[in-house]
Nucleic acid binder design. Structure first.
Lengths: 335, 335
DNA sequence: CTGAAAGCGCTTACAG
DNA sequence: CTGAAAGCGCTTACAG
């Protein structure tokens, strides 16, 4: 490695080629008004010097950055991983790059990241909010940087949003279990996120209309949390005959505990999870799941963003996707 | 949204505060040589105008960007997801941001992304190479941007690397099955990546020393590929009594096919997978796995990078981690 | 078709 | 402690 790689600049290339920086810039930007011969000379100089344009300078000059910020609360949650992947794909095709931020469900980290994205003047932000009321969201919008909320809406009405019908998901899961003959149905909830609260509300509605008492314990969106909550719910006397897991991670935790306790699924206790990660169908036993159309949602998110970037849509859009019940062995009727 | 949010600049703040831009800059950068009163006035002006510093300009001026690039081949593969997450954490703590790039195992995408990272003049790059011989790697290093290869080494000797003992993994998996009494052991391979080739080599070595014929089919690192390869291996006459899956995704694919075919695991056929994703222990049945210390590896990667950034280590380092066999039901001895 | 010049929004060495 | 000035490395409107 050379001591201090003296970055070669456009000026150096210009000198070498016997041209002005303006001309070199034109060559680099495929301007049509440049002779084939000039282009040739410039290209040669570039190659000889190993010149690499500095995009930071370009970005400053053009006052824009071909980058979008993607802020999620847990990149390890397959739900978000799938989202991120789809967004990356779509963004790449359009020449945008992705700045990925993981907030760990912390308002403070969200704040820090959004401020950074704002300072970097990214083109747009896709946000699964840890703090839906964060002021930085408004500041981004003030600066003309579009924000698309995904999975969870944000407070600022100027942001677009793409969400799923979480209330519906909670209801469908509960109804499915009622129809399978269960009455003591408990919920491993994820109450620290709105989606979890909505799912819980759906569950409680259906339970109450069936004159049943809702019971839940918080799993906090992690495998370990799901385990602890399940342990707790199994203490209830008499214990539940069915569990609803509010997301895939707490679902996995729940299943692990059921296994550890030697409980058979679905004979001793049934299980439904909201979310349908790619490994749900191959668990022991395959788990009945409420699938969110993650791909479609991500595509919708990108479209909304692109739309804002290229056009001048003024009104905000809010798209809500339905979930789909996929019945598997974990809720098979036991006669 | 205002038509064209007229970004407020440091100069505007200076005017408002009756100060020079230099002073405002000093306040922003916590320079000690500024009066409390001046600071006060500047802060007020900032608040009144809703000023947000433009980092692109700052980056240009300082000729550095507090950002590191992370390039992986498949963000959806839990192996990389865990890696990315750990790296993000460590980077965040140190004030660096992460530009995440997904190459989809395509040399062309790798090239495009590395060029972008180079143009953006990121501080450093963490790379799980799709193309270990990519020229851009050398170009980054030429520019003084450190590169740490992870999971797969790269050709340029100036890059650091953090890998696992894949040859050993292939061997251990095979030996474990031999010890469990199997002879017809087949491999669902991932030959499009070096790690896969090494694992295969380990498998073949052990098979040959036991005078057994190695048999494998390529799963190309995806669930669907794993399914196809497994179908193929089951055609062999007589069929294998045990399978080794070269990574977690093809392992999941293999298991799915075994289920679909009504084959019992391990009674009809045993399964080991290299990689131990968080859901492996709860599959049907729990799958024996070779765990890579993903967390530790990621921490090591960050350390190597930081080390290069802060110090002036000249020689490159290459760290190799061992895998750990975790025996579960999928390879239980069947008597 | 090409160049000189201005400017994107910051920071900092140099004076005072 | 504060300011004027130069400069980070580009791009482009304006002349020619």
């Amino acid at each position: 490695m050379t001591p201090e790689a003296p970055s070669v600049r456009i000026r150096d290339v210009a000198e070498r080629a016997g041209m002005s920086p303006a001309t070199v810039s034109r060559v680099l930007n495929d301007s049509s008004l440049v002779t084939a011969e000039t282009r040739e000379r410039v290209m040669r100089a570039i190659a000889e010097l190993g010149y690499r344009p500095n995009r930071v300078a370009r970005n400053l000059r053009l006052r824009k950055v071909e980058m979008i910020g993607v802020v999620v609360s847990d990149i390890e949650n397959p739900h978000f991983t799938g989202m991120v992947r789809t967004v990356e794909d779509a963004a790449y095709d359009r020449g945008y790059r992705m700045l990925l931020c993981n907030t760990d469900e912390k308002a403070e980290k969200q704040r820090a990241y959004l401020e950074m994205l704002l300072a970097e003047r990214v083109l747009g932000v896709i946000l699964s909010a840890s703090n839906p009321a964060g002021e930085e969201i408004g500041e981004l919008l003030d600066l003309g940087i579009p924000v698309v909320a995904v999975d969870r809406p944000v407070k600022d009405p100027r942001a677009d949003s793409v969400t799923t019908d979480n209330l519906g998901a909670g209801r469908i899961a509960t109804r499915h279990l009622l129809e399978t003959g269960h009455k003591r149905i408990a919920l491993v909830s994820t109450p620290e996120v709105v989606t979890g609260l909505e799912r819980m509300a759906g569950y409680e509605q259906v339970m109450r209309s069936a004159s049943l008492e809702p019971r839940s314990a918080p799993g906090y969106s992690r495998v370990e949390g799901g385990m602890a909550a399940t342990e707790q719910l199994l203490q209830i006397d008499p214990p539940p005959t069915a569990l609803i897991a509010s997301n895939n991670l707490v679902g996995l935790g729940a299943l692990r505990v059921l296994h550890d306790r030697g409980l058979r699924v679905p004979q001793d206790i049934a299980l439904v999870m909201i979310d349908d990660p790619f490994w749900a169908a191959i668990l022991d036993p395959p788990v009945t799941a409420l699938a969110q159309p993650v791909r479609k949602m991500a595509e919708c998110v990108v479209e909304l963003l692109i739309d804002r970037l290229s056009g001048d849509r003024r009104e905000s859009r809010h798209v809500v996707f339905d979930v789909e019940l996929r019945v598997r062995a974990s809720t098979a009727r036991v006669d």
